[in-house]
């Protein structure tokens, strides 16, 4: 059984009590569904992340001003000058 409450806390999500209840059952059935995968033999199989063979291209170290501070702040819910404002962090 998944402890939805503690996982939601780790993910910083407030859930309604209805959501909490529904998720518990739904997630359990999804996890149950996944358990079939355990049968696949994966010994010595390297996990695959990027599924296509792509050559890494580095970026050269050149700085570029792509936006102004004003643009950086454009969508800020709350600001003070050009700084983002949040509740006290200490």
């Amino acid at each position: 059984m998944i402890n939805v409450q503690s996982v939601a806390h780790l993910a910083r999500l407030t859930l309604s009590s209805d959501e909490e209840k529904a998720f518990e059952a739904q997630l359990s059935s999804i996890v149950q569904h996944f358990s079939e995968v355990e049968a696949v033999n994966t010994a010595n199989v390297e996990p695959l992340i990027t599924p296509t063979d792509i050559t890494l291209v580095f970026r050269e170290d050149k700085k570029l001003a792509v936006q102004t501070a004003e643009e950086a702040m454009k969508n800020a819910p709350e600001r003070s000058g050009n700084l983002f404002k949040v509740p006290p962090v200490v």
């Binding site: 995968v37 199989v45 390297e46 996990p47 695959l48």
Partner: peptide
């Protein structure tokens, strides 16, 4: 979970 899924992903590919 995650690692297992990524391993099966390689087999599937």
């Amino acid at each position: 979970y995650y690692k297992k899924a990524c391993q099966v992903r390689r087999l599937l590919r």
